[in-house]
Design a binder for these strands. Sequence first.
DNA 1: CACGATGATTCTGA
DNA 2: TCAGAATCATCGTG
Length: 445
Amino acid sequence: MDEQPRLMHSHTGVGMAGHPGLPQHMQDGTGGSDGDGRKQDIGDILQQIMTITDQSLDEAQARKHALNCHRMKPALFNVLCEIKEKTVLSIRGAQEEEPPDPQLMRLDNMLLAEGVSGPEKGGGSAAAAAAAAASGGAGADNSAEHSDYRAKLSQIRQIYHTELEKYEQACNEFTTHVMNLLREQSRTRPISPKEIERMVSIIHRKFSSIQMQLKQSTCEAVMILRSRFLDARRKRRNFNKQATEILNEYFYSHLSNPYPSEEAKEELAKKCAITVAQVHSRVRPPRSSEGIHAVSNWFGNKRIRYKKNIGKFQEEANMYAARTAVNAANASSHGSQANSPSTPNSAGSAGSFNMSNSGDLFMSVQSLNGDSYQGAQVGANVQSQVDTLRHVISQTGGYSEGLTANQMYSPQGINANGGWPDAPTPSSVTSPTEGPGSVHSDTSN
DNA sequence: CACGATGATTCTGA
DNA sequence: TCAGAATCATCGTG
């Protein structure tokens, strides 16, 4: 401010009162005692004010210049600066505190997490993908929902960014404008750079509070969108037919121990395209792979319902057992790995114990699946095996009786009263002999 | 709309 | 922590 050695007002008659056109008696406060005269004075003053207002810009500039060039200006300006600095310091000391607004931080975090404010593509699609993935069920039917969600999210995102940009632009413009004004004014009144700085920060604060409103409403919009989406997600969705078949085939081909290992579940989930699934589940390991939970749910339900009403599932059991056998037979007749992708059979690779609900014949068919079947001479009588198999299965009355009749294939110790082993250790059932991912390897016999 | 099927959730016991 | 059991809530069908 020292570089502004000019003064706005050169003498004690500061401001309006110092206007040269003002009547002198108003300046010295001895304006007489009669009311009429005073009214007249006021009228004069108003007139003067109007005159000033009407003055042309050039005239004002000239007047300003004259004042600036007054010989007393530098001294008085310095005094003014000193006084002001003291005042400003005290004010600034009181206002300097600027703790980061927790609410703003929360909003920022949320917008970032939802992919609204993050990097252009990644965040949004990631969040959308996660949400879509969480919508559960098998793939295609929720893709529309998914894209809808994505579209709306990106719409919100776009609006948000547009508005944000507008705000920032307006903020910058306004800041520039104010700074110019202040610089201009600093010729006639003491304005320190710090004061300008402070003013700028005040402006930014004001604008950021506006921004916060924008962020808040954006958050609300996202929340509404999300909750709608999640509501949809929470709705139960039946697995598609193929997924059910895959699960059923696994179930019936592992009837003695329908407890798929984690790996098997993962494999099944993958095959069934249950990439996601339900947020909550009966089994909730710390790992992700939500599809596993859905598979666990399915097997849990299936075991119970099967057990409760074996008769009802008899036909289904027969069908799947037969299908498994046919698949196995086909595989054997082709002597290669070509086989139904929907035969998550099991015990095969090890040729071990899991093929349960049938008798020896089933086992023999089973052996076709095994690694050792290659040399087996079975291709020719596949059909008869299947027929016999059907018969045997139908006689077993489901896994419980089948199990008792089939203990030689069930080293896990299936009990005879219709239950699976008392304390089956699911992973130990399939894993030791099959190893991770065995479902597939078996299937592809 | 009723009803069975079915996926998910909750509770309980081992 | 997992499985069984009961239950809830939704879906699909007639």
